[in-house]
Design a protein around this nucleic acid. Structure first.
Lengths: 118, 118
DNA sequence: AAGTTATATTTCCTTACGGTAATGTAAATC
DNA sequence: GATTTACATTACCGTAAGGAAATATAACTT
């Protein structure tokens, strides 16, 4: 079963940790698609796809409408934004680290130049 | 075993899909920490932490040095950048979607205003 | 060289994941 | 109202993940 005890961020990252599910997101990125279209695109069984869709929905990465007898699948930005937000926190960190490393390199080169002149 | 058959992006997202591992990354974000320090911080057994570290290392999210008998664990930005890169692709997409939605709303409001004036 | 410290590896267990096949259900069509 | 279409749910299977306990290894200390 879809483990609803795990935190939202874990669910989101877990949902993204599967190539089939990322392919589904890629497929619906520029427009909703029916479940059958998704089944046709990926080489998987229909129940298999439905299961993946459930995981993606539980992670807030997709939404589903009801249009006649089809259930078009839409990309939902909210889930992705949450994951992006978490990573961005570290992005600032590592960019800061790069800046500090650049500064260190500059200082070392300055030292080297000075020593060269002695 | 560490499944080296899965693609790098899946490994990275899977590594991020665990609160303990994210806590480890948070802990070493502003400086390397020894394994024991990480064990002490999280309430987990030492083998458990070593296993998590292996997953993080396999995903390119951490690196390990050898300093005397300790093995300090460093954050590795490369893995995070890859994950961020993937998400960023969709970020552009959904920001585009938001822009289009804004434009639509503007148009609808313009229509409404015009109809109101009739 | 023996003991201690720091960490890795192995073993074992339980639970979750990814997949298929079979069946159920809701809506359109005849 | 019976049938088809589109999809969900159930049941089941194999494999992998997450955890603890026990053991192994590697380096420092005395």
């Amino acid at each position: 079963m879809g483990d609803s005890m795990t935190d939202p961020l874990s669910r989101t990252f877990l949902a993204l940790a599967d190539p089939t599910r990322r392919a589904i997101l890629a497929q619906i990125a520029d427009g909703a698609q029916t479940v059958n279209a998704i089944v046709a695109a990926n080489g998987l069984s229909q129940p298999g796809i439905s299961k993946h869709l459930k995981v993606l929905e539980g992670a807030g990465l997709i939404r589903r409408e009801r249009v006649a007898k089809t259930r078009p699948v839409h990309l939902d930005a909210a889930g992705l934004q949450q994951a992006a937000g978490w990573i961005d926190h570290y992005r600032q960190h590592w960019e800061g680290a790069f800046d500090r490393m650049d500064a260190l390199i500059d200082r070392l080169q300055a030292e080297e130049a000075k020593n060269g002149r002695q």
